[in-house]
Design a protein around this nucleic acid. Structure first.
Lengths: 136, 136
DNA sequence: GTTTACTCTATTAGATTGATAGGGTAATTA
DNA sequence: TAATTACCCTATCAATCTAATAGAGTAAAC
């Protein structure tokens, strides 16, 4: 299940990307336009800023703005920041690998085998699409 | 994140499938072999029986056994029973469709667009593999 | 009729999620 | 330089889900 955090984050990024100019957009505007709890959105935008997707400007006329060209914002990076690991189990994760405590041998593990294929399929989707692809 | 229920369920199915004969296998044997809490496994096997994957036999020499040929057990069906919807959001789910309350128009929704691609990628994996493919 | 092993109900601790509140701080603008 | 604006941070909360556990019940086999 996709978390609301990711859902809202994606919507916010798309909203910013669809703006022609690079002018900062206030949180309240995004929250209202996309039906998102403003306070919750604040924390999401903050984490997107800290991970280098967004810039912010304080004071009057301030807000958030996209730093990169939408065509250069890979979904792999966005998803990893918002949703966390792309893999459904740690033992097939590229960036968050962890050995299973209960499973003696990964090579012969059926779950490992299936989840590896799922991970690759998802990666392929996320890797081949950018923020620009999500704009209508 | 894959739930333990699904993980255990897959392991149990694979364990049964890798047995040459169709003799019933006791819950305790599977639980021990796969490092699974026996009581938890009980409920999982029960739901797999109720959904037509397994048969069971009571009394001495009883246990669970696979009903179909492993090559005919599609991962789509297994995953839907164990994990639930394959889609990450209800608005792109084939079997569990639900309209988003917060989103006015699916066609122009960026989340919908991305999750649709992800769903298709996952479906492709699950649809093209059976229980037989998971056996080492 | 006793044993075996599946079946069912209920309960629980813990973690996570999504949302809310309230205040603090920095940067603009007048 | 003071007021305003809007970002920034901490804490809290109810609700939900997960995984595990316990205990009693029931059906089938020997």
């Amino acid at each position: 299940m996709l978390s609301k955090k990711t859902k809202y984050g994606l919507k916010a990024l798309t909203y910013l990307a669809s703006k022609k100019d690079q002018q900062p957009v206030q949180i309240s505007e995004i929250a209202q336009a996309e039906n998102i709890s403003q306070k919750f959105l604040e924390s999401i935008l903050l984490s997107l800023r800290k991970s280098g997707f967004l810039g912010s400007k304080k004071g009057k006329g301030g807000g958030y703005y996209l730093i990169k060209d939408p065509r250069e914002v890979l979904m792999t990076d966005v998803m990893r920041i918002l949703e966390g690991p792309i893999a459904m189990v740690p033992c097939v994760s590229l960036n968050f690998y962890e050995k299973c405590t209960d499973c003696p041998d990964e090579a012969s593990c059926s779950v490992n085998k299936l989840m590896l294929m799922v991970r690759d399929a998802n990666l392929e989707v996320y890797r081949s699409h950018t923020l620009a692809d999500l704009i209508a």
